[in-house]
């Protein structure tokens, strides 16, 4: 059992490193190299409907809010 857990741990670390290494490798990106960054999934603002729904729900049910923009929450949600 311990060997299995150790194996899973090692695989997780290797997978994590294989994702993190290319994620943080800095690169000088030319304008013609921004095709990937222009994809919808790469938007730092996220999907507008998803963002609105999440903000609305969590604002209504939790004690803290904000961080993504300015202007308040806009409801007295119960």
């Amino acid at each position: 059992m311990r060997t299995f857990v150790y194996l899973i741990f090692c695989i997780t670390c290797l997978t994590g490193c294989s994702i993190l290494e290319p994620m943080f490798t800095p690169e000088d990106v030319k304008p013609w190299q921004k095709g990937i960054l222009a994809k919808k999934q790469m938007s730092l603002k996220g999907d507008p409907i998803d963002e609105y729904v999440d903000e609305h729900i969590y604002f209504s049910k939790e004690g803290s809010t904000g961080g993504k923009g300015v202007g308040g929450g806009g409801c007295g949600c119960n």
């Binding site: 290319p22 994620m23 943080f24 690169e27 990106v29 921004k34 960054l37 730092l44 904000g66 961080g67």
Partner: peptide, 14 residues
């Protein structure tokens, strides 16, 4: 910040 052609990141202080 555009870190590389596959990664972008942001930080806000409000």
């Amino acid at each position: 910040k555009i870190i590389n052609r596959r990664t972008a990141a942001m930080v806000n202080i409000t």
